[in-house]
Simulated scan of single mutants.
Amino acid sequence: MVRQYGIGVLQGSPYQLSRILALGEDLPDLTLILSSGAPAAPELIRALRDRYGVPVCNRYICTEAGLGLGTRPDDPPEDAEESVGRPRSGVDVSIRDGQGRALADEDPGEVLLRSKAVMSRYVGKSPYQAVFARDGFIRTGDRGYIDHTGRLHLVGRVTPA
């Protein structure tokens, strides 16, 4: 369908993108590939870029917060291979320890996001209300760190206490 309809931007999870890549089809109309929904291996990012000759961007998206971070088509290729990019305009990222204290760059902790797109609460008596920090950030449950260039690197999930 991508080829049949001349789709220029292909978005999918790393699994979906790896399955498309495995088909070996030519997709001459592609101009951009967006990966989101799960961590993408550097090898997959490189293979997609090499096969289709277009930029591949990583997106860090959270159901409760919308688009938080992402690499851009004009970023160095290694940005998408190593990270999920930098915060989008209007998005704040905080890396915190288990007690909620902000951590310094390069120190791994829980990733929290804040923006106008972050939902304020769940409806009703949801057991998930604890994801909302008092300062407007939402806890993502992901572990990561911010490097010296401002890129977010994901390193796993937070282990429940």
Rank of each mutant, 00 (worst) to 15 (best):
P87C: 06
P39E: 11
R88V: 01
G85T: 03
R88N: 09
D75Q: 02
I33K: 09
E64K: 01
G66N: 07
P28G: 11
Y52V: 04
D75A: 05
R49F: 13
L32Y: 04
P39V: 14
E78Y: 10
E82D: 11
A65D: 00
P73S: 02
P28S: 12
P42A: 05
A80V: 05
E82Q: 13
N58Y: 01
R59W: 13
G66E: 01
I45Q: 10
E64C: 04
T71S: 15
Y60L: 11
G66L: 07
E78S: 14
V54Y: 04
Y60G: 08
P76M: 02
A80Y: 11
D29I: 00
E82W: 09
R51E: 05
R59P: 04
D50L: 13
S83C: 06
L34N: 15
P28E: 12
R51L: 09
N58M: 15
T71V: 09
G85A: 08
A41G: 06
R59G: 15
G66K: 06
P77G: 04
L30W: 07
A41E: 10
D75G: 07
P39Q: 08
P77H: 00
G70K: 05
S36E: 06
A65Q: 01
P42K: 00
A41L: 14
I45L: 08
P55C: 05
R49M: 13
L32H: 08
I45K: 03
A65H: 02
L27P: 10
D75T: 03
L67Y: 10
D26Q: 15
C62W: 06
P77L: 00
R51T: 14
A47P: 10
N58C: 12
A65R: 02
P76H: 09
L30H: 06
P39S: 13
L27M: 13
A80L: 10
G70W: 03
A47F: 06
P73H: 01
G37H: 10
E81G: 08
D26L: 15
L27H: 11
